[in-house]
Write a protein that binds this DNA or RNA. Structure first.
Lengths: 218, 218
DNA sequence: ATTATCTATAGATCTATAGATAATGC
DNA sequence: ATTATCTATAGATCTATAGATAATGC
């Protein structure tokens, strides 16, 4: 009874559980950092445990292989990203606006969430193979837009890959020359993508200019 | 005198030179195949020399490291691609049409040049960091289009990354579901990208529908 | 005689595990 | 007593090189 008193962590967990969870999280954080540095799977397990500041052997208490760690780490980060997008789009009905809002928020990650942005550029198009975060949401929204007759672009998968290329380019250029990418640049690109999807130019401008929820508060 | 008689190979080269060149080419072909399989730099030198059917030690007669081999192999393949594009666009003046033609030819690689297409999807967005092939040409054409006032899209680098995402999506879907991507699908995507770049919809349709040179002959 | 290729191997990693140590549970 | 962490290391790779073999030049 008293032992299940909350301690600010998950209820029902022992101190041992929490210590284990911390070690596991340290490994995940280290993996995320390595992907962001662009060294991804090329790092050795030794480098990973050094970065996480844990003993080498502890790695195998949590993951069977580097692959499993990197997959887990990617899914966790992208899941956070996905929930952020869901929150921002909760009240929107029009698929075109959902899509545009998701993209405009993602394009701002360079300054709102630099670590996440660096992870995304580090992962590259592999993002599309991870069933979390942008890919499943954007694909769903593109298909909804097609069904609603707002998007005339024929192939949703190809459209998704195009959007990923656009976002990665945006984040990459921002990392290299931050002054070139501001909110206007992100919104103009969102507008351009809407045109590509088949939304008339005038309407695309309107949809991409709607006010966004306050990102800073997240 | 008689010794420089041509033998169908480069003049002035000895038989030793030609044997060396064959070995080197076998290594490059093996590297291209490994990239196409998506195993790129993860293959060991032993696997590379096995695939090339040459002795392990010969590797170091030609390249100092795997990195150097893969860089050389990528540049060689992309250079061939680039020259193919140059040939097709030689007589075109309008930057928008040069761009559209380059893209429409590249989108057809899935059936005109399947090996090259598989290499491209295997390399992914790393294509943008190799100063050969699509990237420098597309960047040049986008900038020309901007200067000519035909493209209103603001950032050429971001636009380039978007186009790369589109092409990679196209080739990837074609590999997985060939029936989904035919010439019409490629041309529709080219048209959509022109709209994204700021070309009016009607004009985009016109530019993306011009007759292409006969690709089969290449 | 010269040059490239091949085979064999030393030495440097890197992974996976065993066994000792430390922390927590009860 | 139980569980997770740590250190140390065996065994499996993998790279780079040395030295032997084969092909070509002259």
């Amino acid at each position: 009874m008293a032992q299940t008193a909350t301690t600010g962590k998950a209820a029902g967990s022992t101190r041992l559980d929490r210590r284990k969870a911390r070690t596991r999280q340290a490994l995940i954080d280290a993996a995320v950092g390595l992907i962001a540095e662009g060294r991804g799977e090329r790092a050795s397990i030794q480098e990973i445990t050094d970065a996480a500041d844990i003993g080498f052997g502890s790695f195998y208490n949590h993951f069977e292989s580097k692959d499993e760690l990197f997959r887990t780490a990617s899914e966790e980060v992208l899941e956070r990203w996905g929930r952020m997008i869901d929150r921002a789009c909760a009240d929107l009905g029009d698929p075109a606006e959902v899509f545009a809002t998701s993209f405009r928020i993602s394009g701002r990650l360079g300054w709102t969430h630099p670590d996440l942005a660096r992870f995304i550029t580090g992962a590259g198009l592999d993002l599309l193979d991870i069933p979390r975060g942008l890919a499943p949401r954007a694909l769903r929204d593109i298909k909804l837009g097609q069904e609603a007759g707002r998007f005339t672009i024929p192939n949703a998968e190809v459209a998704l890959s195009t959007v990923a290329g656009a976002l990665l380019g945006l984040l990459r250029v921002h990392q290299q020359q931050p002054e070139q990418i501001d909110e206007t640049a992100v919104d103009q690109l969102a507008e351009a993508i809407l045109r590509m999807f088949g939304i008339p130019a005038r309407e695309a401008k309107r949809v991409a200019a709607r006010e966004l929820p306050d990102i800073a508060a997240w």
